[in-house]
Write a protein that binds this DNA or RNA. Structure first.
Lengths: 129, 129
DNA sequence: CCTTGACTTGGAGCGCACTCCAAGTTTGTA
DNA sequence: TACAAACTTGGAGTGCGCTCCAAGTCAAGG
């Protein structure tokens, strides 16, 4: 349902990313819809680059209840900012890839693969890590 | 100049991500501005999630000269598409984080942390991997 | 009931991208 | 010239996030 492998599901549970997945009489996991949506949210955090230990921290705070809402809010705020940063970084990288493609489409195949246009050179210099 | 560690620089050269970095008489590396811009471009590819083996493949094609421009173009086109995909995925994840934050700001601290609003639930369901 | 396949656990193994180390060489300053 | 700091190499080690394995248990169709 989420595209995650059974092994990863087990790993996430062991790692504390999923709280209290219940079992049937035989000991097999039964995922509730809350488990499922919890997992889906965890996957959003993972997809956007939050490391597993930080997701665990968040999930622990959820378990601890209302007293931790402030901490959780600030975690999500910080993470939201990081996502916005990633997006703008991605946009800058995409611009450079697109300028390269433009060069290829113009049939430019310069001696110097990278210094060939001022446009590209300045883009490359402009966005230092 | 690029924020990359000396070790990573050496690793990238060994891995074939940087072509022909020259040495001085003593054998120490002397990075030309072409090396530098090449590295900067490599870093853009890496930042946007291109694995090292694919970057190497691209760099090899560059070394092979004009005969490979078509292949290089299609690599970059594919990669550009992947970046655009990443960006829209990030946007969807950000939306979910922001909805969660809204909930926190409204003082909602529901029994069920994830199913609490239809808005969030539908967002979570809508964006399966 | 019996078989087949899916599940359970703890723990080992893997691929990636670095990151560090040791032993030796080169460089730049006093 | 002496010496510390920065470089060279090959190779080992690390951290992350899974992924696989073995040995055993459970579930469902014939």
């Amino acid at each position: 349902m989420t595209g995650v492998s059974a092994d990863t599901l087990r790993y996430y549970e062991k790692a504390g990313l999923m709280d209290g997945v219940s079992r049937n009489v035989g000991g097999h996991r039964r995922f509730s819809s809350a488990d499922l949506n919890g997992l889906r949210f965890v996957l959003k955090l993972r997809m956007t680059g939050m490391p597993i230990r930080d997701v665990r921290r968040y999930v622990e705070l959820v378990r601890q209840g209302d007293a931790t809402t402030d901490q959780r809010r600030s975690i999500l705020q910080g993470h939201g900012d990081r996502i916005r940063q990633q997006m703008s970084e991605l946009a800058r990288c995409l611009e450079i890839v697109d300028v390269k493609l433009e060069m290829y489409d113009l049939g430019l195949s310069p001696m110097d693969e990278h210094d060939c246009t001022k446009k590209l050179a300045s883009l490359l210099e402009g966005t230092l890590k």
